[in-house]
Computed example of a mutant assay.
Amino acid sequence: MDATPHPGLATAETAPAPARHRAGGGWLVGLLLPLGLACGWELAVRAGLAQGRLVPPPSRILDTLRALAVTGELWTHVLASLTRVAAGFAFGAVAGIALGAVTGTLPLARRLLDPSLQALRAIPSIAWVPLFILWFGIFEASKITLIAVGVFFPVYLGVAGAIASVDRKLVEVGRVFRLSRPALARRILLPAVLPATLVALRTGLGLGFMFVAAAELLGASEGLGYLLLDGQQLGKPEQIVAAIIAFAAVGKLCDAALVALTRPLVRWQDTVREAL
């Protein structure tokens, strides 16, 4: 019998490498667009085609970042923002997972709680600030609470939606095999909702950085949001852009860390992305 593989079929030897084997070069490709835009703007300013006063060239921004890093001011602001985001993310994620699981599995809890939570989700983040300041003062508690609120809603929606969308046939198969409730949750429900939950956590983390900027703009002496406000008050656009870049870099690193930490939980998945 001919053992030559069909040209249209992939074998273990001819199949493409998993996506994670190519991840090392993926981030380099992702840098092409921002580096290209930065170099183009730098050349435009140096050639006199643009003024560069309100949007400073990358060289001035890098000089500002370097000066802030040398004095240690940059690391102080980064640490302050990271600490607030970490605390707010922890509280918001735990509450979102817990309430999402309750409303997703218990119809009575869903009818009782979900309408109120959906109404609260529509409230703008800035509207909570006066109330939180009145309750918790202008110190860290109000900032962390505001971040936790921002993290809570996407995590809650992700978990509740993932549980509600579990295929009924999977649950019926578990009942056919007479799995107990804990075994049904561990072997069927948890694997089914875990991928969507991890996506919701990433979304919540991104909103956590958005909310920490709002919290620090409204009253803080440290943090990247404070660095933004200080640059605006002193008329330093290069400091504002430097703070924005720091936000982007720190947020991306935190997102990558979350993905790396949670990847073992979904290693069993065989998705189309692994073959691309």
Rank of each mutant, 00 (worst) to 15 (best):
E42Y: 05
A44H: 07
L33P: 13
H21P: 00
R46L: 15
G40W: 05
G24N: 03
A23M: 06
A23P: 01
L33Y: 13
R22T: 02
A23D: 03
R22H: 09
A50W: 15
G48C: 09
V29E: 03
P34F: 07
Q51D: 15
P56A: 10
G40P: 12
W41M: 11
L28Y: 10
G36E: 11
L33Q: 06
W41A: 05
G48K: 10
L54E: 12
E42C: 04
R22Q: 04
G25H: 04
G52D: 15
H21E: 06
C39P: 00
A38W: 12
W41F: 11
P34D: 08
H21V: 04
R46N: 11
W27T: 07
A50C: 14
L31H: 05
W27I: 08
V29G: 08
P34T: 10
L49K: 12
P18L: 01
P56F: 12
G40T: 07
R22V: 01
V29A: 13
G26R: 08
P34R: 07
A50R: 15
P56D: 13
G24V: 12
P56E: 10
G24E: 09
G36F: 03
H21N: 01
E42Q: 14
P16G: 02
A44E: 04
G24D: 06
A19V: 02
G40Q: 04
R22A: 05
L54W: 15
L32K: 01
G24Y: 02
A19I: 01
P18R: 04
W41D: 07
L49H: 15
L43A: 13
L33D: 08
